[in-house]
Amino acid sequence: MSTTTTSGSRSRQNHTVHTVVAIVEDKPGVLMRVSSLFRRRGFNIESLTVGPTEERGLSRMTIVVDGESAPVEQVEKQLYKLIDVVKVSDLSQEDVVARELALIKVRCNNVNRHELLDIANVFRADIVDMATNSIILQVVGDEDKVDGLIKMCEPYGIRELSRTGRMAMVRGAKSTNVHDKEPEQIAKIHASQGRRVAGELPFSSD
């Protein structure tokens, strides 16, 4: 499988999107607080994924926001105002691995099934279900790859489509978890842009 390198900030369909990761306390209502904050401030969410982290009690949200609607600095600062948000990382300037999973149910018949299998093969998609008149493809990759496969399937008729939205992780040893100290130069940027620097978390002290 080819590894694609992506930066967290990229152009999709001619507009800039930012990838923001928020580590949040796994408490009731936290998803509503975050999504409602975006609505309230007029920040458009392209996708939002949530799941547990390596630490119990903390969840990780990967939020892709439309850069036109949202100055990423305000997004970060507003997220920090939520008491349940422990740490926010803007991956826009980072070298990240960004992935999305999609399940695509495509119409097919005995005649064209082979073509679809070939397409799946090219995209390294898995066939996870097969029936007489449909198959389900599962594909993992960045958005372009998923978009590409969807486009190829369209002529056959897509009966159902489910995409997870983007998950992202910084490459290398650096991480967005709450234990790592913020590298010095990032702490400086945060300080200079009026972001919080003191306290053990989320940033190391200046």
Partner: peptide
């Protein structure tokens, strides 16, 4: 212990 709530009251010396 509120992990997500640690207001910064000091002000950055450099600033």
């Amino acid at each position: 212990n509120l992990r997500g709530y640690k207001p910064n009251t000091e002000g950055h010396p450099g600033m």
